[in-house]
Design a protein around this nucleic acid. Structure first.
Lengths: 146, 146
DNA sequence: TTACTATCCTCGTGTAACACGAAGGCAAGC
DNA sequence: GCTTGCCTTCGTGTTACACGAGGATAGTAA
């Protein structure tokens, strides 16, 4: 049997998160002792690990709650759970694609800044060169390529 | 000159977001007319586009505010802005790697569910096969491979 | 026994980036 | 004069906790 602090240490969650998850019903096996203190057995620790895992993969607390409740209903809900996971995988894939676009876009921006800095240094004696820099600067900020 | 609604239509933001950004000082060129109504000229629209672009790439409002303020200070801040962008690119890269891990993990989970469903169907007449399903189910939920 | 320390509890507020709706003002058209 | 449609501000709701306050309890040291 473990306390909140121990459960937090074991799972790598914060104590706040552990209390939050148990209060949300994501750890169905957790009990309270006579002093109203949360007691985590091995099964509770396993649930915490599972919740953490789903959370880290981007699932919302609400969705995890739904999933946990389905688990409690037994094996008959396995098809539903499978569907849930597939859907969640799709949203994770969409996020991945979005992240890729962001990186590409930011690489363009930083490349433009590098170009500005390179052009700027050698031409400080040439007033006309600032026009180019200004133009490039506008390009950097307003680029809409996301 | 455009109103909030028009600016929202032009930039593809919601009216709420447009008001929010202007009130946060992310659109320095915006003015109010005698009826206290926000008026957006072309420069304001450009700022909105720029803010939207940075936001979509995952930058926080606070960081965008810092960046906008640096822009207003003039070309002397270009090196600082360049550094900011590089740092932001690094965080975006980190998010990208995280998203990749999530997808890999979820692909494993959904594959396990598929395996369960395939094993379950043909063996409903064999009571012993449920042990395997139960074991695999535990694997699915508790897998800590994130 | 008293005191101190460590831990636990609950409860309330703060965060980010808006979404949403209420209540009210203003101009234009019928 | 009234409705329509847009604008304004303000206040609350959202998510997933973080953080601290205030108070209880349990174990240990003097």
């Amino acid at each position: 049997m473990h306390t909140v602090k121990e459960a937090a240490q074991i799972t790598g969650l914060t104590e706040h998160a552990v209390r939050f998850y148990t209060d949300k019903g994501l750890v169905p096996s957790v009990q309270r002792n006579q002093n109203n203190i949360r007691m985590f057995d091995e099964e509770s620790i396993n649930w915490l690990h599972g919740v953490k895992c789903l959370k880290q993969s981007g699932m919302s607390i609400e969705a995890i709650k739904t999933y946990v409740d389905l688990c409690l209903e037994g094996e008959s809900t396995i098809p539903q759970r499978s569907v849930l996971m597939m859907e969640h995988k799709e949203t994770a894939l969409a996020k991945l694609e979005e992240a890729k676009r962001h990186v590409v876009h930011l690489e363009e921006k930083t490349a433009l800044y590098q170009a500005i800095l390179e052009h700027r240094t050698p031409d400080t004696t040439n007033p006309g060169s600032w026009d180019k820099v200004r133009h490039m600067h506008a390009e950097v900020f307003y680029s809409r390529s996301v």
